[in-house]
Design a protein around this nucleic acid. Structure first.
Lengths: 257, 257
DNA sequence: TTAGTAAGGTTGTCAGACATCTTTTACCAG
DNA sequence: CTGGTAAAAGATGTCTGACAACCTTACTAA
């Protein structure tokens, strides 16, 4: 049906740039499946005529899709929908915005709670072992004088992996890239370090036990508790630590080893 | 440092497209710090002259950087290096993979449940009104013979917005791009359509009520119910509906010649 | 001083042309 | 008919020039 595609070729009316509108509509058509992986797109001339724009607009729109990995173009041949189309989620973390970190923590909590719930149900024994090891690694790192930040993140990651859903793992990795600094703040808050460490260990242990016992709801509750307290600990961190976070980007971790 | 800039303005010699080379050099200049956040880029004309290419090439290269979130352009003013670092999360949705859709639904459920919980607590009266309107829009769309897919997504989006956390909104928009198709399947499942519609309306109403009443836990439970049932409805959809999704525009399978 | 306005600069869009490469077609030899 | 080769057609990549829409600045006039 030729006009089954018609919905994807609506008028370009809104206030946005023509090129953005076109990129949007084309990517929609790809996500919808109106344009399927491997399929050839209409020629630039055809698209420009259909949308009533110039070829420049089409080319810049295609340039965006190309950059997003949605299409590939071959000179003399045409442009084709990528074999496994990807979508990107992009987060902006405004500089020195404490609020943004808090909001990200909320999102992370949403995902990790569900991940723990699923992990309690679906974990294999091998995955449970990995979680145990990850927890032991934190202690070891701390005893060796490290901050244990990497290991802490790996612990949470191992839980996400035990949920057996690749999207959870990818999401948590994504959040952690932004939150790494924030986690570091909590763990390097010397004033309260020992108190915090004990709390964290206990909370981690509770999560692990719930997952080991296959208690989904308990695991979820434990993660809620853990991450809510993590937020509290973060809020208690001295302001100067945050400053250091925001400008840390110049030198690679001058933290005392 | 001084000649670091010179490196950025080398000849464009390799076999790649001019536009790709230029995009590469410019983004490198940004990562290097030769071009700092907030700084204005040279004008398109200047860049094209400096590199010895046409303005089209420059514009397409900038289009790529724009898509990557590295720069922003303001008409009449210029292009500027973005001031907030961005990270991108890319999901691959394997073609024809029913399993991938299910996994995405799980992730979406995690986020939307928390969004509803927060919305119940933080919503403004204006945002509540938006949610109400969005719900009415679904009915209207259906009565007018539409599927209401767009409106359904808008309803969930309005809830995410009421959570007053931009990352939730962005995430849900992201998931929905992948899931739009799956939602459409449920909504166009003629066999059970009326039954499903009634269920969906009731579930939406329950969510709305909980959010209106400020009952966070109730709102969360309602969303869990709604999305779990949505998954069930999706699983009940006849296989041929999925097939139609996957090969919607696959007409010319007949062997020519 | 301040408001208004004109001038110039910059990105966004359009149109047409040519270069380079790929695919298809047409033709010819076998 | 078949197979191979060359020409033609078609597609993307690049160039050029022009105008539109918008922003910024500077200058003028009250």
């Amino acid at each position: 049906m030729a006009h089954a595609v018609a919905n994807s070729y609506d008028r370009l009316n809104t206030g946005l740039d023509l090129t953005r509108q076109m990129a949007q509509q084309l990517s929609q058509a790809i996500y919808n499946g109106d344009l399927k992986p491997g399929q050839r797109l209409p020629t630039e001339a055809a698209v420009s005529q259909r949308y009533g724009t110039s070829r420049s607009v089409v080319r810049e729109a295609l340039s965006m899709l190309r950059q997003s990995g949605l299409i590939v173009s071959r000179r003399g041949s045409g442009s084709f929908v990528a074999d496994s189309p990807t979508a990107e989620l992009r987060f902006k973390l405004p500089h020195r915005s404490f609020q943004a970190v808090i909001e990200l923590l909320e999102l992370r909590r949403a995902v990790e709670v569900e991940a723990a719930r699923l992990a309690a149900i679906r974990r294999t024994s091998s995955q449970l072992r990995h979680i145990r090891n990850a927890m032991a690694d934190i202690d070891e790192a701390v005893e060796n004088g490290g901050t244990g930040v990497e290991e802490d993140m790996a612990f949470h990651r191992s839980i996400a992996k035990a949920a057996n859903n690749a999207y959870f793992t990818a999401s948590i990795d994504f959040y952690n890239r932004f939150l790494q600094h924030a986690i570091a703040v909590t763990r390097t808050n010397e004033a309260q370090r020992l108190t915090f460490m004990e709390q964290v260990v206990a909370e981690h242990q509770a999560i692990l036990n719930a997952i080991a016992d296959g208690e989904a709801e308990a695991a979820a509750r434990c993660v809620v508790t853990h991450l809510s307290r993590a937020e509290k600990r973060l809020r208690q961190a001295p302001a100067e630590l945050f400053d250091r976070i925001d400008k840390k980007e110049d030198a690679p971790t001058s933290t005392p080893n």
